[in-house]
Amino acid sequence: MRREAALNAAILVALIAVPAWAHLSDEPFTITLATRAVILALAAVGLNIALGIGGMVSFGHAVYFGIGGYAMGILASHAQSYTPMELFGLSIEGTKSMLVIWLVAVVLSALAALVIGLLSLRTSGVYFIMITLAFGQMFFFFSISWAAYGGEDGLSIYVRNGFPGLNTLVPIQYFGLCLAILLVVLWFNARLARSPFGLALNAARQSPARAETVGLNPMRLRLVAFVISGAITGLAGALFADLNRFVSPTMFSWQLSGEITVLIIIGGVGRLMGPVAGAVVFVALEHLLGGLTEFWHIYLGAALLLVVLFARGGLVGLIAGRPGGGGGGHG
């Protein structure tokens, strides 16, 4: 445990030090990369609540990422064109305020997770993986043909949305904002894992039958975890859209669901900082290998294989050793 704590601290220090160095030496693109890693980490932290603690292997978390992204894209595009959105007779104004957008993103993705969770949690194992994938594909194909918001072309937002007191277009400021959110969510996550709810959820994952005999309702526990998980990933989607100032159906694609899952497995399933370590390594690999060769996917694939075959518990597990207590394990 002490080694894991030290490792966690090291990851956090690196997350702050690298962009700070980049800012001082005028390398704004490194900050952009770091922001990307932080946002992907946030999405993965969200998924990790369902996957790591709850044991629910969702292969459709792109749904919530995409909903968050489109919440940003749709609201900001209406604000950009000064035309309110007509919805069931209601006229809704667009907005360029990040706070409002985040709220909408979180609420909508939580709602979607509630509905999808209610329907999907009747199944388990591979069937659960596949039904969540099915919902992801539905959203993907819908967004491609949704002409009102760009279809496959997606939506471009020319100026990043605003946050009180910050100039979000300055890379280091936007990075700071995203990092702050990640830290808050990590803190929440750590509390959650140790709360009675988290312990009950963990128990329900390890032995549903035993959990039931002590009066817990595994189904309800999982559903709540799934909704929290979807909401966090939705928030990450809104941030990601703002980073790129662009949303498109690729945010709903199964490849993206796969990528978020990959981040967690690289880092370590169920580890607090696993998703963060995974995201940092993944973004770095993507950037460095992409610069080396056109066929960099081969090396990425080989690296992933090595992690699965030889680094049980992901990178965090490899460095910090076996988890002490409840945090780790496999779904």
Binding site: P28, F29, T32, E152, G154, F240, N244, F246, S248, T250
Partner: peptide, 30 residues
């Protein structure tokens, strides 16, 4: 698209290019 946007940021911010070119697909261009 998101990689394209990121690369454009890199080229503008770090490489300080004067001219951009090369995109094949309309959705990436947008």
């Amino acid at each position: 698209p998101d990689i394209a946007v990121q690369l454009a940021d890199k080229m503008i911010q770090s490489e300080k290019v004067d001219v951009l070119t090369g995109i094949i697909w309309s959705n990436l261009a947008m």
